[in-house]
């Protein structure tokens, strides 16, 4: 019994704990009210089921959130990711449709567009020392304008099977976006944890002055994280647009930045920068997707979905605040004391 308690205590000390608990709560809810949620079937060489759906539809959010996580770790924030995802998707779709480009180079160009956006954000933040929120606000508004100028204000639809594969394809029965998500997660992990980049990012986020005095090029580090964030935003935008074979400058990735920030924070990374948690971020993003999918499964009317989502998020965020944590700690201590006194 005590061992379990010890383990539980150990688990709760992990920053990722609350995102895990969030997912578990929603899954538990499904166990009772929608057991179908856990059914996985294998049809036509494809895996089907709500869980698979979460992993499929959630992958674009996971990808964006990973970039956001690195930015937030430097004490910044990138609120342009939604717009950048729209720009990336628009560039790729436009090149496919109007320039008759093949899918691979078009996707590459979409990524380049994301990279350019990241370079711009990084320039404003790292070189000109503009506050990240303001710096990325520029692209947040201008990005959608750019996307619309490219398409002439239209929603572009295309009929490219190769491009659609990015959002709808399957490899070995696993949805292709899920595979991309796994590869990106692995890539970001390798890049930050198997090089010195991760510690440098954390050092900049914890104490930029100390980092600079220690010889770290803080400008370089900041620039790198905004570039990664831009790249991943564009990739996620293309996955979304490939899924529906169209690009919409106005609505692609709308409010994506908020979901991404939420995923990062739920995953245990503080908005004050510093230590960052990639696994927590992934779980946080999947939690948001699980929640969305669950709500959809229940056929909750569209107009109330936001409210339900908000309530759950408020609940989880509240649970993870220091105040509530301390209150809980006090409560358990008192109980313990009470038991001891009685004994």
């Amino acid at each position: 019994m005590n061992q379990v308690k010890q383990k539980l205590k150990g688990f709760m000390q992990h920053k990722e704990a609350w995102a895990v608990i969030g997912i578990l709560i929603v899954l538990l809810f499904n166990v009772f009210f929608s057991p179908k949620f856990f059914q996985i079937s294998f049809n036509n060489g494809h895996l089907y089921g709500s869980i698979i759906d979460v992993l499929n539809r959630g992958s674009s959010l996971v990808i964006v959130s990973l970039g956001m996580c690195l930015v937030i770790a430097t004490r910044g924030v990138d609120i342009s990711v939604g717009s950048v995802s729209a720009v990336g998707a628009m560039v790729a779709v436009f090149l496919l449709k109007s320039a008759g480009m093949a899918a691979a180079p078009a996707i590459l160009c979409g990524l380049l567009a994301g990279l350019a956006c990241g370079v711009w954000n990084g320039f404003l933040v790292a070189k000109l020392n503009i506050q990240p929120m303001i710096a990325t606000l520029i692209l947040m508004t201008v990005g959608r304008g750019i996307a619309q100028i490219i398409s002439g204000g239209q929603i572009l639809t295309i009929n490219s099977k190769a491009y659609a594969f990015l959002g709808r394809g399957y490899v070995f029965g696993i949805p292709f976006p899920t595979i991309i998500m796994i590869l990106v997660t692995l890539g970001v992990w390798l890049l930050t944890r198997k090089t010195s980049l991760g510690t440098s990012i954390e050092a900049v986020g914890i104490n930029e002055t100390s980092a600079r005095y220690a010889g770290i090029s803080t400008t370089q580090i900041l620039w790198i994280v905004y570039i990664i964030c831009g790249l991943l935003a564009a990739l996620s935008g293309m996955i979304e647009s490939a899924n529906v074979s169209s690009a919409d400058g106005n609505n692609n990735g709308l409010l994506l930045e908020l979901d991404a920030i939420l995923a990062v924070v739920l995953g245990g990374t503080s908005m004050d920068g510093g230590k960052f948690y990639l696994a927590g971020t992934v779980i946080g993003a999947l939690f948001i997707q699980t929640l969305t999918t669950t709500i959809y499964t229940f056929g909750v009317p569209a107009e109330t979905i936001m409210v339900v989502k908000a309530l759950v998020v408020i609940f989880v965020v509240l649970l993870s605040t220091d105040r509530v944590k301390n209150a809980f700690a006090k409560l358990t201590e008192r109980k313990k004391a009470g038991v001891e006194n009685a004994g």
């Binding site: 010195s196 510690t199 440098s200 104490n207 002055t209 220690a214």
Partner: peptide
């Protein structure tokens, strides 16, 4: 203000400048 990186470990703090000198390749 300009010395310690408070949330990093003693090891990471000791290695900070040497690592910065070595660049991206992690020691």
């Amino acid at each position: 203000v300009s010395g310690i990186v408070g949330d990093l470990s003693i090891r990471e703090n000791i290695m900070l400048s040497l690592q910065a000198k070595k660049g991206l390749r992690r020691i």
